Simulated assay, not measured.
Amino acid sequence: MSTILSVAGSPSATSRTARLLHYLNARLTSDGHRVIELDIRTVSAQALVGADFQHRDIVASTELFAQADALVIGTPVYKAAYSGLLKSLLDLLPQDALSGKTVLPLATGGSTAHVLAIDYALRPVLSSMGAAHIVQGRFVLDRELDLREDGSLVIEPTAAKALHQALDQFSCALAQPPMLPAAS
């Protein structure tokens, strides 16, 4: 099975996005995949903002991307785009950090007005970094995610069904042979 890097791009410690990723990571693990979690808010802010490519957190994050066969990237949507925290990390990775990898982009937000953030903001960046296959992303409204006091997450049934379909598509893409880059 595949090694999947699950990247949480929210700056919030009580992030719906991070909880959603934990939920999906459990499903991927039960499907036999090895899931490694990267919560970007734990990466040195000074290294991210200062573009310190040599900082141990940036070097470690780069190594995680290199080890992964595939990625699930989750972000809240702020001002019609993915989080600045995620942008900061992606900017410090090598240009080909996603080369040959399958990626499932996920976003959460408060309004359906932000539903296109995946396709118009995040997808082009993932593509420019060499992703071989970007699975159809999923946007989940904040109101479809109920964070319980005990730390559990309850997902509205229609949203849960759509998320499971996205994971199924992601798993199918992982089962396909890797796509070769076009000849120059």
Rank of each mutant, 00 (worst) to 15 (best):
Gln54Asp: 14
Leu98Gly: 05
Ala113Cys: 00
Asp69Leu: 04
Leu48Cys: 13
Leu92His: 12
Ser61Gly: 10
Gln54Ile: 04
Leu48Thr: 10
Ala47Thr: 01
Asp96His: 14
Leu93His: 06
Leu104Ser: 06
Leu92Arg: 13
Lys87Arg: 13
Ile58Ser: 04
Ala117Met: 04
Ala107Tyr: 02
Ala51His: 11
Tyr78Ser: 09
Ala47Asp: 05
Leu106Ile: 15
Gly109Arg: 09
Gly100Val: 03
Leu85Gly: 06
Gly110Pro: 11
Val77Met: 07
Ala80Phe: 15
Arg56Phe: 00
Leu86Ile: 11
Leu64Ile: 02
Pro76Ser: 04
Ser99Trp: 08
Gly50Pro: 04
Leu93Trp: 10
Pro76Val: 05
Ala121Ser: 15
Leu116Ser: 12
Leu89Val: 05
Gly84Arg: 14
Thr112Trp: 08
Ala51Phe: 12
Ala117His: 02
Asp96Leu: 07
Ala81His: 11
Ala47Tyr: 07
His55Cys: 09
Asp96Trp: 03
His114Phe: 13
Leu85Gln: 13
Phe53Thr: 12
Ser83Leu: 06
Gln95Gly: 10
Ser83Lys: 06
Ser88Cys: 11
Tyr78Pro: 07
Asp69Arg: 05
Ser61Tyr: 14
Leu89Met: 14
Phe53Leu: 15
Val115Thr: 13
Phe65Asn: 00
Ser111Asn: 13
Ile118Gln: 00
Ala107Lys: 05
Leu89Gly: 01
Tyr120Pro: 02
Ala80Arg: 12
Leu92Gln: 15
Gln54Ala: 14
Ile58Leu: 05
Ala45Gln: 11
Thr75Val: 07
Asp91Lys: 10
Asp91Cys: 08
Ala60Pro: 01
Ala97Gly: 12
Leu92Phe: 06
Leu64Cys: 04
Ala45Leu: 12
Asp52Trp: 03
Ile58Asn: 05
Ile73Phe: 00
Leu85Asn: 12
Ile73Met: 11
Gln95Asn: 12
Ala51Tyr: 09
Gly110Val: 04
Pro94Trp: 01
Ile118His: 00
Ile58Pro: 08
Leu93Thr: 08
Ser88Ala: 15
Ala66Trp: 03
Gln54Glu: 15
Ala70Leu: 08
Gly100Phe: 05
Ile73Glu: 00
Ala81Ile: 04
Arg56Glu: 11
Thr62Tyr: 04
Leu93Gly: 10
Leu86Trp: 08
Ser99Ile: 01
Leu116Ala: 14
Ser88Lys: 07
Ala121Arg: 04
Gln95Ala: 15
Gly100Met: 05
Ala113Gly: 09
Thr108Asp: 04
Thr102Leu: 01
Gly50Phe: 11
Ala51Ile: 02
Thr62Gly: 01
Lys101Trp: 09
Thr75His: 10
Tyr82Ala: 07
Asp57Arg: 09
His55Tyr: 14
Ala60Trp: 03
Ser61Cys: 14
Ala70His: 10
Thr108Glu: 03
Thr108Gly: 01
Leu122Trp: 09
Thr112Ala: 09
Gln67Lys: 12
Ala68Leu: 03
Gly74Ala: 09
Phe53Met: 13
Gly74Lys: 12
Val49Pro: 00
Ser44Met: 03
Leu93Tyr: 00
Thr112Asp: 08
Leu122Ala: 08
Ile73Ala: 03
Leu116Glu: 06
Leu104His: 11
Ser83Ile: 02
Thr62Ser: 12
Ala81Glu: 03
Ile73Val: 15
Ala80Val: 07
Ala45Gly: 11
Thr112Phe: 07
Ala113Trp: 11
